[in-house]
Amino acid sequence: MNTIIQSPLFGILLSIICFEIALTIYRKTKFPIFNPLLICVLIIVFILIKFNISLDDFNIGGKLISFFLGPATVVLAVPLYRQLSLVKKYLTPILLGITVGSFTAIISVIYLCKLFKIDKELTLSLVPKAITTPIGIEVSKIIGGIPAITVSAIVITGIMGAIIAPIICKVFKITDKVAIGIAIGTSTHAIGTTKAMEMGETEGAMSGLAIGIAGLITAILAPILINLIN
């Protein structure tokens, strides 16, 4: 039994099976809080605790999935290619929107953490919460954060964004597809982008574009803003 658990195949298969179960639940209910990633994580945590399986054993296969996470985002270029005319038309507003969104995400975390007297190392770990995981981990290392906490914050941010984004658009009557996609991608990275793709191809393409640009801008701005504020 230990040989099976300590095999890379165990973590990979468990992740795939749990995600398929979570996806089925979401498709049946269509309720935003039943986000497939959230449900998948909860099922995996339950199984690990119930059967006393260590996180290290699970991560033997889990790390392989993480390794392919970066290259997998290349798929987002397909819908973006189909929307190139819109990108060219709204290039300036798109870049300004992503820059302002990234700046706001960093500043809001820093000042809210100061307000609630949160430890400096934890604050630095939360700064890259709004960007995609591979970039967020590297930014966290550069600025002195804890990558494991950063990953958790990124996942929670993405899930909350995927749940809240459609509600905010409805409440504030935001109907422009480009604006919706850019806002979701800038603030909730890849997890939010899955929701944007459900909303429409244009929203998904713009959200995918925002992921990469927001990651790059955050990587540049975060160290500068942290030094200035400190």
Rank of each mutant, 00 (worst) to 15 (best):
I107C: 10
T175V: 12
T175S: 14
L13S: 10
G161T: 05
V109R: 08
K141H: 11
G200P: 02
F46W: 05
I159Y: 02
A105M: 14
T186A: 10
Y90D: 03
Q6G: 13
L14E: 00
L23Y: 09
L37P: 03
N52S: 11
I146M: 13
N52K: 10
T194S: 14
G185N: 03
P79N: 04
K30E: 15
L76S: 01
T92E: 01
A22E: 04
L122T: 14
I25L: 09
G62Q: 06
L115F: 15
K195C: 01
I159C: 03
F116C: 06
G215H: 07
T150V: 04
N227H: 15
R27N: 15
S15E: 04
S125R: 05
R82E: 12
I12E: 03
V41P: 06
I25T: 01
L42F: 11
L115H: 11
N2E: 14
F68D: 08
I12D: 04
V41L: 13
S66D: 14
M206H: 00
A148N: 02
G192E: 04
M197T: 09
C169A: 13
V41Q: 05
K141M: 08
I174Q: 10
V87A: 01
V74S: 08
I12V: 11
L228S: 14
I213D: 13
I229H: 14
T123C: 08
G97C: 06
M1N: 11
A196G: 10
V178Y: 01
K28L: 10
L37Q: 05
S187F: 02
T150C: 05
K117A: 15
K120R: 14
T157L: 06
V139N: 10
T193E: 03
I159E: 01
S152F: 11
A72W: 12
I25Y: 00
K170R: 14
K129D: 07
A77H: 08
L228C: 12
T24R: 12
G145F: 03
T133L: 09
I118N: 01
G204K: 05
L42S: 08
P134Y: 06
E20S: 13
T123H: 06
I167D: 04
I229C: 14
I184M: 10
V171A: 14
I137M: 08
E198C: 01
L209T: 07
N59T: 09
I110Y: 15
L13V: 09
T24W: 14
V78H: 00
I180D: 02
T218Y: 11
C169N: 13
G204Y: 02
I168S: 08
I213A: 13
K129P: 07
T202V: 10
I149S: 08
P223D: 10
I94K: 00
A22D: 02
I163G: 04
G192L: 02
Y111S: 09
I131D: 08
V139F: 10
T99H: 07
I159P: 00
S7A: 11
K89M: 03
V41E: 08
S187P: 00
I156T: 02
